[in-house]
Design a protein around this nucleic acid. Structure first.
Length: 575
DNA sequence: CTCGAATGCGCG
DNA sequence: AAAGCGCGCATTCGAG
């Protein structure tokens, strides 16, 4: 329980003398300062965290939190000035000029040299991302600027929610990296050997990959055909009478030729080897953990990106290698049709929300009679959110508009705004970037008297492209906000669980995560929690409860639910 | 040699 | 070659 005079915020930054923490009351007024050194920072933070549970304010979460976690110190809440700056400087909710005067806050996030990929060692100091300002005065000034921008904004409570969620995401991203995803390198190796053959000692092609290549060359009657160079492969195929325009899988699959099957097999195996083969295993898995770099807010819509390791592209093929430590379990949970549910809520479309309640949303649409089959419901709804105009998806749109006019109206409006050069915002106030100068120039040029037909065609195409982007932005971005709220709530629930007493010395997740369930992976609408076996059921319940809480936090009493598929297992392989 | 574009495929 | 959004990464290849 915080003391009555406990600081609401503690701002950390650097001065000439070292690290200084400034204590702020609830109104943002400074009540004291505390000088620190790099070495006594973790202990002091742990003390203040336990006593006051403040919101920690810093320029850039990785710059501070990575070393705190290494020292065994977890914090509950923070305000990440870099991430919040990015939201506020472009949010349509913020009044013009409120963020004026900020310098250096558009910097890329700090990259720690010791933790970074080998390539970064080659960069000199000038090239390595150094992060935003960390000087205490600049940090305090930016924090004041941001508080002012929120207070004077069109919707302070939504923006506060967004900034808190974004900052929680920053903590979670560091914790995910610190804990890592439990990865069984031996299981991974078995999958590789099974599909590719033994790892060739000298490099080179594994046996089964080479065999597939040989079958392709035999079928093409071309013993030297190159399979890895697209232009050369295309010529070989043409010589053999396979008249494709590309070498992509789905076009090849439309042709009949003895070379096609082995070629598709070869491409599949070659992809596995180059993307997630032994080299990947050597580089990215150590000590039983895959530790990717998650990049919160890395996508314009607010989704996370990743950098290194391909964290967001792990093939389903390899899920079997994600294995809980001995004595632990994995809780794997994903949301069914997150984006359509979010769309129903943000548009207050009670009919769409009713179709989704307690069941597969596409089945609900079929039951309502809007379209005849689940497949059509899925194609139509995805088309509505992505802006499909042709094909089956385009043909089904009118039926969807009749059945769900509010939901369809929301995405149609967003598209129209984008086509007209406007900006759109998510539910909590993240705003799309304005059109590029080239885009605007193309539009105005097309309206001039001497505009050519080509000018007009290009302008229209660009306008439609941008419409599809803004159409999707509002839904994808709000879904990202829901996911942040889900994870933030889940993180608190997991930390509130009583730590297990049994000796789980085998845990390789580090001091902060050794005795409690903790998040281990996140992918847009899915989380993996690594939990001591005795707490796995509680962790699964927490995942479900957090989803309900996130729905209420964003959408209040609006009757939409977020249906989860939750599994408890030793591996992340899904049935 | 480095760098960017193009291609293809993995994920949501 | 996708129709229809958002990404990252490996590979090849031509330009400088």
């Amino acid at each position: 329980m915080p003391r009555p005079d406990a600081p609401s915020w503690i701002v950390v930054g650097r001065t000439d003398g070292g690290v200084v923490a400034a204590l702020l009351d609830a109104d943002g007024a400074e009540t004291g300062r505390h000088p620190l050194t790099a070495s006594d920072l973790p202990g002091w933070v742990a003390e203040r965290e336990a006593a006051d549970a403040p919101r920690w304010v810093w320029n850039d979460t990785p710059q501070w939190y990575a070393s705190l976690l290494r020292a065994g110190v977890r914090v509950g809440r923070c305000h990440d000035l870099r991430l919040c700056h990015a939201i506020l400087r472009s949010s349509a909710y913020v009044v013009r000029g409120a963020m004026r005067g900020a310098g250096g806050w558009d910097a890329a996030p700090f990259v720690a040299v010791a933790d970074s990929a080998p390539a970064l060692f080659d960069l000199d100091g000038a090239e390595r991302p150094a992060g935003p300002p960390d000087d205490l005065d600049e940090v305090l000034a930016e924090f004041a600027r941001q508080r002012g921008a929120v207070a004077s904004s069109a919707d302070p409570s939504r923006l506060r929610l967004l900034l808190a969620a974004e900052s929680a995401g920053a903590l979670i991203a560091e914790e995910l990296r610190a804990a890592g995803l439990p990865w069984d390198a031996a299981a991974h190796d078995r999958i590789l050997v099974d599909l590719l053959g033994e790892r060739p000692p000298g490099g080179g092609q594994p046996e089964k990959l080479a065999a597939a290549a040989a079958r392709v060359r035999a079928a093409l009657g071309d013993p030297t055909a190159s399979l890895d160079s697209q232009p050369k492969l295309l010529r070989s195929l043409h010589r053999a009478g396979v008249l494709v325009e590309s070498t992509s899988r789905w076009e090849l699959a439309e042709h009949q030729h003895p070379a096609i099957d082995p070629l598709l097999e070869y491409k599949k195996l070659a992809r596995l080897l180059s993307a997630n083969g032994w080299a990947w295993l050597d580089e990215w898995v150590a000590g039983g953990r895959f530790r990717p770099v998650f990049v919160p807010g890395g996508v314009v819509t607010g989704r996370w990106a990743s950098s290194g390791g391909g964290a967001l592209q792990l093939p389903r093929q390899l899920r079997e290698a994600v294995r809980a430590d001995p004595g632990w379990k994995l809780v794997v949970a994903d949301v069914a049709q997150l984006e359509p549910r979010v769309l129903a809520a943000m548009s207050s479309d009670t009919a769409l929300a009713a179709a989704a309640r307690g069941r597969d949303l596409y089945a609900g649409i079929v039951e309502s009679g809007a379209v005849p089959s689940r497949q059509q419901a899925k194609i139509a709804l995805l088309g509505a959110m992505y802006g499909a105009t042709t094909g089956e998806s385009g043909r089904l749109m009118p039926r969807l508009r009749r059945a769900y006019p509010r939901a369809m109206g929301l995405v149609d409006d967003a598209a129209r705004t984008g086509e007209d050069g406007g900006v759109v915002s998510t539910w909590l106030g993240r705003t799309s970037p304005p059109p590029s100068e080239a885009w605007a120039a193309a539009q105005s040029q097309a309206t001039e008297a001497e505009a050519s037909g080509a000018d007009e065609t290009r302008a229209r195409r660009w306008a439609r492209d941008r419409g599809r982007f803004t159409r999707n932005f509002v839904v994808q971005g709000t879904a990202a906000e829901w996911a942040l709220a889900w994870m933030a709530d889940l993180r608190s629930r997991l930390h509130a669980m009583p730590p297990v007493v049994e000796d789980l010395a085998a845990s390789r997740s580090g001091p902060v995560f050794a005795r409690r369930p903790h998040l281990a992976f996140f992918l847009h609408d899915e989380v993996i929690v690594h939990a001591p076996a005795s707490l796995a059921d509680s962790a699964a319940q927490a995942v479900t409860d957090a989803a309900a809480a996130a729905g209420r936090l964003l959408f209040g009493d609006f009757p939409v639910d977020f249906l989860l598929d939750v599994h408890i297992a030793d591996s992340a392989l899904k049935g």
